[in-house]
């Protein structure tokens, strides 16, 4: 098995990233995590890929059975999701914003075995893009859409050190999004901004655990995958699986 860590270079936060040894600074996050990640299982080949995912040629992705994106801007998510869908590569994405986190999977045509004798086929999942434009029932996806738009606009996530300007921008993006879909303002309550700043560390293992499990399930072909979104609210500890597709 080959695993590639395509983490983009960013400021190393040795406290938040337990794979990054104390005192390491000035190198990419992927590079800094490599040694510890490798030690987790010496049987796995772990490699670091430099440069941003967006800059990779299409062929780059063909070598993988599964691609998982975290902390990417919306544009890259959509582009790579489409690409993977067309190449029948299992695609996953996940993020954590404050108390909220989500996981998304596009497995394309996916066969899996469940129970000993039966085999089921899951209908193709619609690509990621519909999540943004078609969703209407739950607050979460809309809130996530706002957060992803924020990331696109600012190239970063809301920062507690810039709480006031970031809150203003979030609310502005919310209003734009809701307006463009002709929805009422209370679709996303104003206070959503209070619980989505920075990453809250215990939310990450929940979202990461679900992501990891889904990737294992998808690649092993065992058990029904979560279809196709998982949303987590770390305050109520609600974890919802919902399917959003074009209809």
């Amino acid at each position: 098995m080959k695993l590639y860590a395509c983490v983009q270079v960013s400021a190393v936060n040795t406290r938040a990233q337990f794979l990054v040894p104390h005192g390491v600074a000035g190198i990419g996050l992927a590079e800094a995590s490599l040694e510890q990640a490798q030690l987790l299982n010496p049987m796995v080949e772990v490699k670091v890929e430099h440069g941003s995912v967006a800059s990779k040629p299409d062929e780059f992705f063909s070598q993988f059975d599964a691609v998982c994106l975290t902390a990417c801007v919306l544009e890259d998510l959509l582009k790579i999701c489409d690409l993977c869908h067309s190449k029948s590569i299992k695609f996953f994405a996940g993020d954590a914003f404050g108390y909220h986190g989500y996981m998304f999977a596009d497995l394309g045509q996916h066969d899996f075995v469940e129970y000993v004798h039966a085999s089921f086929t899951l209908n193709p999942v619609w690509p990621f893009i519909y999540f943004i434009v078609k969703v209407s029932r739950i607050d979460f996806p809309w809130a996530f859409a706002v957060l992803l738009n924020f990331r696109t606009k600012k190239g970063r996530d809301p920062d507690p050190l810039m709480f006031t300007p970031d809150t203003d921008l979030l609310l502005q993006l919310r209003d734009e999004l809701l307006e463009s879909h002709g929805l009422e303002k209370n679709t996303i309550p104003e206070n959503f901004t209070s619980s989505c700043f920075s990453q809250l560390s215990p939310v990450c293992p929940v979202v990461g655990g679900v992501l990891g499990q889904e990737i294992i399930k998808a690649l092993s072909g065992h058990d029904a995958p979560l279809n196709n979104f998982f949303f987590f609210d770390g305050f109520t500890c609600n974890g919802i699986v919902d399917c959003f597709k074009s209809c």
């Binding site: 215990p202 939310v203 990450c204 293992p205 929940v206 655990g209 990891g212 500890c237």
Partner: peptide
């Protein structure tokens, strides 16, 4: 275990 440990902290 990862998920449960996250929930414990929450």
């Amino acid at each position: 275990n990862a998920i449960i440990a996250g929930l414990i902290v929450l």
